[in-house]
Design a protein around this nucleic acid. Structure first.
Length: 204
DNA sequence: TTGGCGATGCTG
DNA sequence: AGCATCGCCAAT
């Protein structure tokens, strides 16, 4: 047996905080995707954005709707939506029930090549750089909306590996905070975080 | 290296 | 009408 190291699973309670607190903490953690055939693909989260109550850029800004209802539910669910008619975006629902909050996962650093994709090994770090590309490579679509994030399911989250935790504790400037991308409202709210020097970030 | 634009379909 | 995107192509 030659199992890769894995950190403890992230529980819903850990996610039951405001999105602007959870989003930076999720950088460096691992998102695990289990496909229908049982195969598992994992990637380190290298870029996140927070969306919270009162935020005009948030889908839930004008209240509950058939699309966004899940972000009002308990922390630890997936919120998946279609954007520009052709891409999907994957979010982690955070905070308490009734408080709409979500963290958009914008980029992953994959640890192994994704299934069914031939690519130059040098390009591995680009295939999940961006929220739409991430969902394409993880085969995420609207059927994944409202899934519970838990081991054995389609997705779960794992805490930072010790080396990553040490890096961010000793070099906190490696976690960069800046403004969000692709918005027309809330453009000045600094709720995007990314891992400095990661080649897999969508926009360094 | 940067900037503009079209694809494409759901949302409120 | 607008959109939490992406990749192509032109201009620099």
């Amino acid at each position: 047996m030659n199992c890769p190291a894995a950190s403890p699973v992230i529980e819903p309670e850990w996610l039951s905080r405001p999105a602007p607190e959870v989003a930076p903490d999720l950088v460096g953690c691992t998102l695990v995707r289990q496909f229908a055939d049982g195969n598992v693909l994992r990637g380190v989260i290298v870029e996140t954005e927070a969306y919270a109550p009162g935020d005009p850029a948030f889908h839930a800004y004008r209240g509950r709707s058939p699309r966004n209802w899940i972000v009002f539910e308990q922390a630890g669910h997936a919120y998946v939506y279609l954007i520009y008619g052709m891409y999907h975006c994957f979010n982690v629902v955070t905070d308490r029930t009734g408080i709409p909050s979500a963290v958009l996962i914008r980029a992953l650093q994959l640890e192994t090549p994704p299934p069914g994709i031939d690519l130059p090994p040098a390009q591995l770090h680009r295939v999940a750089a961006g929220p739409g590309k991430l969902c394409r490579v993880l085969q995420i679509d609207l059927t994944d909306n409202a899934q519970v994030l838990q081991p054995g399911g389609r997705f779960w989250l794992e805490h930072r590996l010790p080396a990553m935790q040490e890096l961010l504790e000793q070099q906190p400037l490696h976690l960069v905070q800046t403004t969000r991308i692709g918005l027309t409202k809330g453009v000045d709210t600094p709720w995007r975080w990314y891992l400095k020097q990661s080649p897999a970030v969508s926009k360094p």
